[in-house]
Amino acid sequence: MARLRLNALVAAAGWVTSIGGLLAASHAHALEERPLEGVTLAYSAPRTCPSRVELLGRITQYTPHFRLAAEGEDARHFDIRIAREGRAWVGAFDVGEGTGPRSIRGETCDDVVLGLVVAVATALDPHAGLPPETAEKEANVEVREEPPSEPEPAPPVSVPPPRPSERSRPAPAPPPRPVVFAVGLYGGVNGAVSSTLGVFGAFAEASFEPPFARLSWLRPTIRLGAKQSLPRTASVGDSEASVWWTAGALELCPARVTVVDRLTSELCFGTDVGALSAMPKGGAEGGTTRRLWLDYGAALGFRWQMRAHAFAFADLGAWIPLTRDRLRLEPDGVVTEAPRFGISAEFGGGWRF
Rank of each mutant, 00 (worst) to 15 (best):
L4C: 08
L6S: 12
L9F: 13
T17V: 08
G20S: 15
L22F: 09
A24N: 06
H29Q: 14
L31A: 15
L41A: 07
Y43M: 13
T60M: 11
D79W: 03
I80C: 03
G86Q: 10
G86D: 08
G86H: 02
A88M: 08
W89D: 05
G91C: 01
F93N: 07
S103V: 15
G106K: 01
C109Q: 02
D111F: 00
V113Q: 12
A123C: 14
V141Q: 13
R144P: 01
P156I: 10
V157A: 10
V157T: 06
P160H: 00
P160L: 07
P161W: 09
R163G: 01
P176A: 08
P178R: 09
V180M: 03
F181K: 07
G191W: 00
G191P: 00
A192H: 00
L197S: 00
G201E: 00
F212M: 09
G225K: 04
L230D: 04
V236W: 10
G237C: 04
S242A: 15
A247I: 06
G248I: 04
T258I: 10
R262M: 06
L267W: 11
G270E: 03
D272C: 05
V273H: 05
M279I: 02
E285I: 07
R290S: 14
W293N: 01
L294W: 11
A310I: 10
F311Q: 05
A312I: 14
E330T: 13
I343C: 01
A345G: 15
E346A: 09
G348Q: 10
